[in-house]
Every structure is written in structure tokens, then in C-alpha cells.
Design a protein around this nucleic acid. Structure first.
Length: 471
RNA sequence: GAGGCAGUAGCUCAGCUGGUUAGAGCAUCAGAUUGUGGUUCUGAGGGUCGAGGGUUCGAGCCCCUUUUGUCUCCCCA
């Protein structure tokens, strides 16, 4: 009656999928290590209070909350409070430690900030770490969107006093851009575009338009430019209460074209009346200058200044980036940005950082769709020994041990089943070689080695088997 | 939170305007074949047609409710 199933938005990963995912993880890990980042892991669950209020209103709703244990054991006095809070939960989107003290990790950045604050005295700043772990969102699943998915993050935090000028954070930002390019180069992802913008520029636009308080409204509308076009955006802008005059100015800003420097120059002119806006331009310019020195000519992924880029997470304060590939219809495959004072949320002032995130589940989907996984990933057991039972089984087991000692992934069929059944099993598993240790082989102290891809079979010594399989 | 589509064997799906005992391919198991797989042939097992109610002489099919999956919008990686 009840067929087994898994929760909505979660997935099993079969052996071949795990191999392909590990290929992506390993590629990223190598690059992170190569850039001097250190690994970090944090718990799957955090205290609710650590997470709430960090991701915006929508974010709070999407946090997976864990129901407290032992609610029925509460004392009568506590139960009254529990009842009061519970009815609030039933009424509206609401979360309270009284009911849910813990919640599943929503991203890797906030737990990282929490970690930095808790271990501030042990860490050497600037602290560079990478982290590859699953995160959970109580979102509605659809294509490229899961409720459990993995992020691979790299962040640098340092004290602003150490780094004298805030602009110097740009060098880290430039490094992170290089990590993106290097990673997508290694994974051979085509048509990758790294969009870069600055929250300060967005704030500048709002200022220039004379309505700084509507910055969020303006950026949300502008973010939809490539989806609904200028006509849609202008309509949305007026719906969101932007004046005719402001819309015209925004139209002007969006119309800026040319290469990155041309865009920045044009934006600089437009931003004359906004200190914040000018600062945004300067930071972008500085970042791109560092990047030029650090980048390799081989990398295909483009870095493009895109004024219409917004990002939902509300802790970003400066440069923001987002990665897309035009080769497949898919949401962004990575994103990140600069945050000032992220740790201030947890009581440690004066630390700033930059970070990036890879959405490896989407990257997987893209590579899969474009058939870009290397062929040779499908490895595993190299050779299976057929089991003929009795003395032959003993002979096979001794051979098996010697093969394994030589570093060859080998296994034996567990019982002396019919011959073709054993062969079919090996074939289905995709094991490339089979060894037949039978009467004749045992008496001669030899082994028959069959190559499943060619069908060839020859009787050779153990040493020859090892040489063949290790080549 | 709003909407579209779907739920029939382990998997992918047929099943006509409602009409005898609900089918196919793949997979599984057994045999042809007791030391030669990936090709072939034969046979077998496997279903309260997502759940509940209604209409009807009769429902896999029509109606209502419910549930699950999937896709789109919102938002995000």
C-alpha cells in the first residue's frame, strides 16, 4: 500500500551520480586549496535565532524549522506560553524558539560568520575558508531548484583596520572572480558570464532619482530586465511608486553600453551627485584592475558589469556578483558579494568580507544536459573473480587478497552460482575484467583473465594480471 | 502564497463515446545453455487502476473531495 518515497525536493544519488558530483567537488576543492583557502564544516542545524532576520522576510519563511522535542513534557506554566505561541504559528508566518529552537542551515555564509565570531581569538586574519555542505530551503521545488542542495562557498574576512582602506577588499574580490573563471574553465562549462555590480551603485541610482528610500523597489524591478524587457520594467517601476522623472533617469542608466570601462565611465558621470554611487564605481574599477593582473588568458568566462543585477540577500553592501551560463536555460549557478560588518550581527564589529558560492546541483544539471562529464569517471571494481567453489574458491580468495594488496579494486562473486549468472552480474555491473580461477588454472598456478570490452581471454600468471590491470 | 498538467505492474507508458477476465516494452526470476557475459528464443511471477465519496444496470474512464508528484509565476543557488 504505502510505497516508499523521499521528501519533496530531495534526491537519492546513485553510484554514477555520486561519482560525477565528486568530480565537481574535487575540481572545486583543488582550486580553493590552490588559492590558499582552508576547509570548514559547520552543523546541519543552527539555533533559530542565528538564522532569523538574515535573509530578508522571504528568507525567514523559507528556513526549515525543527519542532522542539518533548513539548508534551512541559510544565503547566510553560504550556500556557506554548499554547499562545502555537496559535500565532497557526495564524501567520511566525517562528519562535518556544516552538522551534533549531533550524536547518539556509546557506553557508551566516554559519561562517557565526563561526568567525565564536573563534575570533584563534583565527589569523584575514581568514580564508571554503565550505562544501548541503543547505535546506522550504521552497517549492521546480527545475533546478531543490529543497536540499549543496553549496560550495569561499569567503575571506579581515578586519577593516588591518586593511586600512576598504577598497583593498577588492583584491580578494578579484581573486574570487578568478576562482569562478578557473573552475568553469576546468569543468569546461561554455558561455559562462560573471555579472558584477555594486549595491552602492544601486543605492546611487536611487539617490540620483531622488528617492533613496526606494532602492529595494528599484533594484527588484531592474533585476527583471532580461526577463521582461524595458517595457515590463518601466511598468513595474511605476507600479512600485517610482516617479516619471525617476523612470526616465533609470532608462538612461540602463541604456549605458560598451565594454566595462566605458560603462563605468558613463555611470561615473551619471553618479556625479551621489557620493555612494561614485564609491561604487571606484570599487568596481579597482576590482577589475586587480582582476586583470590576476587572471589567466585561457579563461573563457567573461566578467561583465551589469547594472541590472540585484541580489536578494540583504547583507551584501558592496560589490555583488552572479554567474549564469547561456548554454542552458537555468537560473544562476553561483553568486556572491561583499559584506561589511556581517559579524556585527553577532556582536563582533569591524570585520568585512567577500564571498562566492557555487550552486553545484545546478552546475551538475548543466554539465549533464550538455554531456560534458568526462567518460572515465565510471570506474569502480576493476576485476571480478568468478567463484567455482571448493578448492577453487580458496584459490580465488588468495588471489583476491593479492590483487587488493597491489591496489587493484577487485571482488569475488559470493557463491558458486551458475557460470552465466556470474558473468551476467559482472557485465551488468560494468566490471571491465573477469578472472576465472578454475581447476585447470589452480593446478597450473595460473589465472584466466578475460577482457570484457574486447572479449579476449588468456591464461597468464598473477604478476601478468597485476601488470595488465595496473596499466 | 497563486495557477497549469499528471497519478494504471519494480520502471516507462497504452487503455477509443463508460461495456466481459486491465495490456505492452523494459526490468526480475526460471529454462534452452553443468567453464564463457553483453545478441536470441520459451515460460513465469507481479495490479484493491493514488485515496475517499457520488452518478450508473455497469466506472481505470464521468462528477466532487482529498493526497502525492511535476512544471510555471513570486523568489532564489
Amino acid at each position: 500500500m504505502s510505497k516508499p518515497s523521499i521528501p519533496q525536493g530531495t534526491r537519492d544519488f546513485s553510484p554514477a551520480e555520486v561519482r560525477r558530483r565528486q568530480y565537481i567537488f574535487n575540481t572545486l576543492r583543488d582550486i580553493f586549496e590552490n588559492y590558499g583557502f582552508q576547509p570548514l564544516e559547520t552543523p546541519s542545524m543552527e539555533n533559530l535565532t542565528t538564522l532569523m532576520g538574515k535573509y530578508g522576510e522571504e528568507g525567514d519563511r523559507l528556513i526549515f524549522k525543527i519542532l522542539n522535542n518533548g513539548l508534551h513534557e512541559k510544565k503547566e506554566a510553560d504550556k500556557e506560553k506554548l499554547n499562545a505561541e502555537w496559535s500565532k504559528v497557526l495564524e501567520k508566518p511566525y517562528a519562535t524558539p518556544v516552538v522551534t529552537e533549531r533550524a536547518l542551515r539556509y546557506d553557508l555564509t551566516i554559519p561562517f560568520a557565526r563561526y568567525v565570531v565564536m573563534h575570533q581569538n584563534e583565527l589569523a586574519f584575514p581568514f580564508r575558508r571554503y565550505q562544501m555542505q548541503p543547505v535546506w530551503r522550504a521552497d517549492r521545488p521546480q527545475k533546478g531548484r531543490y529543497r536540499e542542495f549543496w553549496q560550495c562557498d569561499a569567503d575571506v574576512v579581515g578586519s577593516t583596520s588591518l586593511i586600512n582602506e576598504a577598497e583593498l577588499l577588492c583584491i580578494y574580490q578579484a581573486e574570487l572572480l578568478c576562482i569562478y573563471q578557473s573552475a568553469f574553465h576546468k569543468l569546461q562549462l561554455p558561455q559562462v558570464v560573471i555579472k558584477i555590480n555594486s549595491r552602492k551603485l544601486l543605492a546611487g541610482i536611487a539617490e540620483v532619482c531622488g528617492m533613496p528610500e526606494l532602492m529595494m523597489e528599484i533594484t527588484i524591478a531592474m533585476d527583471k530586465l532580461d526577463k521582461i524587457g524595458w517595457e515590463g520594467v518601466s511598468k513595474e517601476l511605476s507600479q512600485r511608486g517610482i516617479s516619471e522623472d525617476g523612470i526616465n533617469k533609470i532608462k538612461h542608466i540602463i541604456a549605458v553600453t560598451g565594454d566595462n570601462e566605458a560603462r563605468l565611465s558613463a555611470l561615473e558621470n551619471i553618479m556625479q551627485s551621489s557620493e555612494t554611487g561614485k564609491q561604487g564605481v571606484a570599487e568596481l574599477r579597482q576590482t577589475l584592475a586587480y582582476h586583470k593582473d590576476l587572471a589567466s588568458a585561457n579563461w573563457q568566462a567573461e566578467v561583465v558589469v551589469d547594472i541590472s543585477l540585484a541580489r536578494g540577500l540583504n547583507y551584501y553592501t558592496g560589490v555583488i556578483v552572479e554567474v549564469v551560463t547561456n548554454a542552458v536555460k537555468m537560473g544562476s549557478i553561483g553568486g556572491g558579494g561583499r559584506y561589511d560588518d556581517l559579524t556585527g550581527l553577532f556582536g563582533l564589529k569591524g570585520l568585512s568580507g567577500v564571498g562566492i558560492s557555487f550552486g553545484i546541483d545546478r552546475i551538475y544539471d548543466v554539465i549533464e544536459e550538455l554531456n560534458l562529464f568526462p567518460q572515465e569517471l565510471a570506474t569502480g571494481t576493476k576485476v571480478m573473480l568468478v567463484n567455482f567453489g571448493g578448492a577453487n574458491e580458496q584459490y580465488a580468495l588468495r588471489t583476491l587478497q593479492q590483487l587488493r594488496n597491489s591496489g587493484i579494486a577487485a571482488e569475488i562473486y559470493p557463491d558458486a552460482s551458475k557460470f552465466d549468472k556470474q558473468m551476467k552480474y559482472a557485465n551488468k555491473r560494468g566490471i571491465p575484467y573477469v578472472i576465472l580461477p578454475g581447476d585447470e588454472e589452480r593446478e597450473k598456478q595460473m589465472l584466466s583473465l578475460k577482457d570484457f570490452t574486447t572479449g579476449e581471454q588468456k591464461m597468464v600468471t598473477l604478476e601478468e594480471v597485476i601488470t595488465t590491470l595496473n596499466s
